[in-house]
């Protein structure tokens, strides 16, 4: 399923290139990729639909993200943020359409992909210390039989240092605070030295200092040419810390630069009835009781009163 020849027919499973295939800058590490403004295409979804069992979650996805982009995926609960990340990570196969990641089908260059799951997906009582978790990031490139060597230990120490966790490296993960846990998981991703970061809610529920620190690390990675894609609930964070935004609700509602989330029209189409307008300010009602409703684009109003959920602006 490699795509050495640009195809115009998406049903062939190949990707439509934005640039002619002769572009020498598009050939990195022997991978044939397209490019946007000189930066190689890192993630390319064409007409993708996906769901669980027979329930569709995301449909009509077309998305191109360049290497070096720092992208936030925003949208309501149940809107498909985690699903989109799993698609790109190769953890879910699309029902239809084609996906190209780092110049191959999802999974082909898996060792260059670091995925960080939501904190809720992790068993924090697991008998590992912070350092052990970060070392796991090195396992895929080591392969069976080889034990971690000096280079791996150096990479782990450097990653722990980068996220400010060197001091607590020996602590069992369950004994760490929420913010420290997110730091450790980002360190594991860093230690893998990936080209693509896929982070599911990396800064949700963390303290301000951790938020700023982690985003600074991700910003630096993106500036070094790595692709960073993170889902977030926090629209203020998305606007301040990311350089591009993908707003999704069952499909891609909008894709643009960071001030996209300040556009009331985009917000209304993304969050539908969960949005409250107070003067010229939009207030998002994070309504955890109403996922899995409201197909994309549909605006509806919840009238169950009580202003359910926490407020975010």
């Amino acid at each position: 399923m490699s795509a050495p020849v640009p195809a115009t027919d998406p049903t062939l499973g190949a990707v439509r290139h934005h640039e002619p295939p002769g572009d020498p800058g598009a050939h990195e590490h022997g991978r044939d990729v397209g490019s946007i403004d000189g930066a190689p295409v890192s993630v390319h979804l064409t007409d993708v639909a996906v769901g669980y069992e027979d329930r569709p979650v995301l449909e009509d996805l077309d998305l191109v993200l360049a290497a070096g982009s720092l992208t936030a995926i925003v949208g309501p609960n149940g809107g498909g943020k985690s699903t989109l990340l799993k698609l790109i990570a190769g953890l879910l196969a699309p029902w239809t359409g084609s996906i190209e990641v780092l110049g191959g089908p999802p999974g082909r260059y898996a060792r260059s992909v670091a995925y960080v799951p939501q904190a809720e997906a992790v068993d924090w009582s697991f008998p590992v210390a912070a350092r052990d978790v970060v070392m796991m990031g090195r396992f895929p490139r080591l392969g069976p039989l080889r034990r971690p060597g000096a280079g791996d230990h150096a990479a782990v120490s450097a990653a722990l240092e980068q996220v400010g966790m060197a001091e607590l490296a020996g602590r069992q993960i369950g004994a760490l605070s929420g913010g420290q846990r997110r730091r450790v998981f980002l360190a594991r991703a860093l230690a893998a030295k990936p080209d693509l970061y896929l982070l599911d809610e990396p800064v949700t529920g963390v303290d301000h200092a951790t938020h700023v620190d982690l985003m600074a690390v991700l910003d630096a990675e993106a500036r070094a040419g790595k692709t960073v894609i993170a889902s977030t609930h926090d629209l203020a964070s998305a606007a301040h810390h990311f350089r591009s935004i993908v707003a999704i609700n069952r499909t891609i509602v909008a894709h643009g630069d960071a001030d996209l989330v300040l556009d009331p029209d985009v917000l209304l189409r993304t969050y539908g009835g969960h949005l409250l307008f107070l003067g010229d300010r939009a207030v998002l009602l994070d309504d955890a009781h109403h996922h899995d409703e409201a197909p994309g684009g549909e605006v509806h109003h919840h009238e169950d009163g009580g202003g359910a959920g926490r407020r975010r602006s």
Binding site: L91, G107, R111, Y115, P117, V122, M136, F139, A192
Partner: peptide, 19 residues
Amino acid sequence: WKELLYSTFDPLAAAASGL
């Protein structure tokens, strides 16, 4: 042992990184 450990602790991240 490493692969079993990683896929036990965090199967999603392990799978995404190629295990």
